[in-house]
């Protein structure tokens, strides 16, 4: 019994989550790809051909013959899509860079903090992450509006005479992304800085490096794993972000997550939105693999 139970337990621990993820995470991607090759139809579900298990292998082959790449041709013909992909990548890259600029000094300060207050600081960084994403984005609308709190402050201080237009521009999106994803950047950088041996920077300084030079030559390179992990954690989801461009961005803001959403919900064009998703996935596959590789390596070191 014991041996049988042991083998069974070991197997189930792997098989159950494995099967779950295969069915609910991996297989759906193949369905997305398949539907991106279908035609739009006025029906429910709104695409043709409908895959039918009952039709057997013959029906399946018929299905494949009906596949078309029209949706992809459509995506290349309309400049809107290429622009949306391009500007998503650009906005995500700029926001990632800005997030890094703000997060690094915070993470560095935390790592230098006395041991007694570090857990509290860590807790304070994580806490906003637990409050709703939607709420945090929403909070910025009241701040960035032309008659909002930020403009009121600047006007009162006499720094400007006209309210700045920030809401519904790309700047609002940058602020939204930096704000929402800041903890994702701070935490990995902090954890790689915290592990660092401080005698290394001291040695560099003893050997004549200025503190700034010691930072760039020693500290920063050693914190690279954290920087890379943080950048991936911000960049990849930011490319497909929907809530932030929708609530903070303007009508001229093109981001692919919003395009996909509109294509699906407003135009009800499922095959085109599936094609949009497939290409987005192809664009992100390289950074995602890179992220996984870094994570797997980090796990290996922790072992």
């Amino acid at each position: 019994m014991s041996k049988f139970g042991s083998a069974l337990f070991n197997r189930l621990v792997i098989i159950i989550p494995y099967a779950w993820l295969l069915f609910f995470f991996l297989i759906p991607f193949f369905i997305v790809i398949r539907i991106s090759l279908s035609e739009t139809a006025v029906a429910m579900p709104p695409y043709l051909p409908v895959f039918d298990l009952a039709s057997g292998i013959g029906g399946f082959i018929d299905n494949i013959k009906q596949f078309s790449i029209d949706n992809y041709i459509w995506l290349t013909e309309d400049a809107l899509y290429a622009k949306a992909y391009g500007s998503s990548l650009w906005i995500a890259a700029v926001s990632t860079f800005l997030t890094l600029l703000i997060a690094y000094p915070v993470a560095y300060g935390m790592a230098q903090a006395p041991n007694t207050i570090r857990p509290t600081l860590l807790m304070l960084v994580i806490l906003p992450f637990w409050t709703s994403f939607l709420i945090r984005v929403y909070a910025w609308i009241a701040i960035l509006k032309p008659e909002g709190l930020f403009n009121q402050l600047l006007l009162t201080l006499g720094l400007i005479d006209q309210p700045l237009i920030i809401l519904n521009t790309n700047w609002a999106i940058y602020i939204g992304i930096v704000y929402s994803y800041l903890p994702f950047m701070v935490l990995p950088i902090y954890s790689s800085l915290e592990k660092m041996d401080h005698s290394l920077t001291e040695a560099a300084q003893d050997l004549g490096c200025t503190p700034i030079r010691a930072f760039w030559r020693v500290t920063f390179p050693l914190s690279m794993p954290g920087v890379v992990a943080g950048c991936m954690l911000v960049f990849i989801p930011a490319v497909g972000e929907f809530v932030i461009p929708d609530l903070l961005g303007g009508s001229e803001t093109l981001m692919i997550g919003k395009t996909l959403w509109n294509e699906f919900n407003a135009n009800r064009d499922w095959p085109v939105s599936a094609a949009v998703a497939t290409i987005l996935l192809l664009i992100l596959v390289v950074p995602i693999m890179f992220f996984q590789h870094a994570q797997a390596k980090a796990d290996g070191e922790g072992r």
Partner: peptide, 21 residues
């Protein structure tokens, strides 16, 4: 891969793919 990918996967892709499933 299937454990780490959902952590960074844009939600629009996850949502759409599950709906289509």
């Amino acid at each position: 891969g299937m454990i780490y990918a959902p952590l960074v996967m844009p939600e629009v892709i996850t949502g759409l793919s599950m709906l289509l499933l």
